[in-house]
Amino acid sequence: MVAAERKGQPERDEERIDPRARFAQMEGPHSEKLYAQMRLIRRFEEQLLERFDRGLLVGTTHAYIGQEADAVGVINHLRAGDVVFSNHRCHGHYLVWGDKPEALAAELMGRSGGLVGGRGGSQHICDGGFYTNGIQGGIVPGALGLSLAKKVRGEDAVAVVFIGDGTLGQGVLYECLNMASLWGAPLLVVLEDNGWAQSTPSYREVAGSMLERARAFGLEAGEIESTDAEAIYNHFEGIVEEVRQSVRPRLEVIHTYRLCHHSRSDDHRPAEEIEARRADDPLPKQRQRVSEERAAAIEQAVERRLQQAFEAAEAQPQPSVDQLDDPLLRGMPGPQS
């Protein structure tokens, strides 16, 4: 039976992405590697915004500028078999996970060689165990289900889901904290609290304590207030392993700050507040730990890489419209024997 064979396939032959191994294999000292990764994210986002301004992209984007230390601090601890569910502000997470700026850029430009062939765009990408979707909080149940599937199948894996302070308004999050605790899910919920949900400050939408919300369901919960990549990296090293070993869910809050607008041209936060927070910019912090010579070399390499990535992405064709058939017809099982 053809259909039975199809469904019997173990799993798709997807690329096994192993961020921890890649990070270990990167050349140079630890501090330089973190700076190089953050510099790639920062310049990717800046170039993206600049291309939006030139009308080379349509739609919207949510830049990660200011929060780069979170992505490098968390995702470098993940290994093959682990999964990440990210949100609308996902480019930084992805660049640490998959390290493919050309495929990401192509996706954002709706090109055929994009991460998902131009179908998803900025908020809807997928690559080897990394998923994003643009519905606030809606990604948490899927991440929980993936973590439980891994557990059921006897895999020694964790699922990480990234949410923000704004996501705390979504009820489905609490359904999932409850079930994750009841069922012992290896799920790490990373809450990037950047102080603002689009144009609304946290104090207008989050009552009580972020941590106690998770603790009420029996989750371990902790926090770090930092934009220091090394501090966040060290903080999460033990946490990721603890979730893996204990097979228990955990919420970890990173208090950070978004130095850019929410999406595009929509920043009405007080200028003095943003100015004051520029001192927390994670990139200069990490750059100080790197020699001027090495920093310049890293920056040059990033520029070269991004220039090639964006040029190659721009040169790609639009996807063929021949693929627009109804997936329901294609996915229908064959006749039963």
Binding site: Y131, G138, G142, L144, G145, L148, A149, V152, R153, V172
Partner: peptide
């Protein structure tokens, strides 16, 4: 928790169950 457990099932389906 219908939203939650339907979503959990979606994740399980993606995870090979």
């Amino acid at each position: 928790s219908e939203a939650g457990f339907v979503g959990v099932a979606i994740g399980m389906a993606m995870g090979g169950l």
